[in-house]
């Protein structure tokens, strides 16, 4: 469905996107993860025919973005990270304008617009002026706008940014509905746990390079070789630190902020971890709790990008 081959974008000496290769099947929800300036928006701008690449190609349904940009525009629905709205235009008129811009006949638009407003929970705002809507409502309206021509691919650049928690949940629910409709969705976000919930695949981009790509589980597995263990203690913290320092596979021991425990990195297997815990109990260490951190996507992202920087 979407094939990105060797996509590169340079601004003078600065490389915003470095030889990006990616293939996504139809119906995939792909989460693009990366810090500000990592290259997410640049990729989306090129796919949306708004930015020339320095080299490389993007194909959607076999159609080249460079060769047939007008064909591509019919296939995609694009929602930028920052966008404005026209003053003194009502929500219904806003969608009608974009419907007409995609060449949808007036009769069809009249049927379509109420359905789209319903989908994004804005039916009650159809006669409201767009510039007076809340940020969350504008985001949802823009999403409805990107759907007006029933595109096969949705490109959503930070759709949840700047939204309050309720608006985020509403946006996430709408995206789940769209996923259910079989749309291929490319979505970028800083809120990684949100992406994990709805994405089939995740791509981590850093300094213009795709440094990890796969399912959420696959990417999490990449970090399973090293985990963080937190040990809470009743007392004798220094003695316990000395004990764990002698253990194999243990590194980076630190006291917890409250001084009532320690945390360290551990590289051993689960059996070796069990053995170490047994030994600690036999040595009468005052352990209250022994906790392995569940690595969430934020940790994954931080770890992967740390490695890339090094």
């Amino acid at each position: 469905m979407i094939e990105i081959k060797g996509l590169t974008k340079k601004y003078g000496q600065f490389t915003a996107l470095d030889n990006l290769n990616l293939t996504l099947n139809e119906g995939t929800v792909f989460g693009f993860v990366g810090a500000n300036g990592a290259g997410k928006s640049t990729t989306f701008l090129i796919i949306s025919t708004l930015l020339q690449p320095t080299s490389g190609e993007v194909f959607i349904n076999g159609v080249s973005v460079r060769e047939k940009p007008s064909e591509i525009r019919k296939l995609i629905g694009y929602m930028p990270d920052f966008f404005g709205v026209y003053d003194q235009l009502k929500a219904e008129e806003y969608l009608d304008f974009y419907g007409a811009s995609y060449g949808i006949p007036e009769e069809e638009r009249k049927k379509l617009i109420p359905q789209l407003l319903e989908l994004v929970n804005l039916s009650h705002k159809r006669d409201s002026y767009v510039d007076l809507l809340s940020r969350g409502m504008k985001q949802r309206l823009c999403l409805a706008r990107s759907l007006i021509h029933d595109p096969k691919v949705l490109i959503l650049d930070e759709p949840a940014s700047g939204l309050d928690p309720r608006a985020r949940v509403e946006m996430r629910d709408i995206l789940k509905t769209l996923k259910g409709m079989g749309k291929t969705i490319l979505i970028s976000s800083h809120i990684l746990p949100e992406l994990a919930e709805m994405c089939d695949e995740i791509g981590v981009i850093d300094n213009g390079k795709l440094i990890a790509h796969g399912s959420v589980a696959e990417i999490q597995k990449k970090l399973q070789g090293e985990k963080v263990i937190t040990v809470r203690l009743l007392d004798r913290v220094d003695e316990t630190i000395a004990f764990f320092e002698e253990q194999p596979y243990v590194s980076s021991i630190e006291k917890l902020d409250g001084g009532d425990g320690i945390s360290f990195m551990y590289r051993g297997t689960e059996e070796e971890q069990l053995g170490m815990l047994k030994e600690a109990m036999l040595a009468d260490m005052p352990i209250v709790s022994f906790m392995e951190h569940v690595t969430n996507l934020e940790d994954v992202f931080m770890e992967i990008t740390k490695g890339a920087e090094a």
């Binding site: 701008l45 949306s48 025919t49 708004l50 007008s70 525009r73 019919k74 995609i76 694009y78 930028p80 920052f82 966008f83 404005g84 709205v85 026209y86 974009y98 811009s101 995609y102 060449g103 823009c142 706008r145 021509h149």
Partner: peptide, 14 residues
């Protein structure tokens, strides 16, 4: 300046 141009340019209008 109003950030409405990118959206307009991704429509099918010539």
């Amino acid at each position: 300046e109003k950030q409405t141009l990118p959206i307009l340019l991704t429509t099918s209008q010539s």
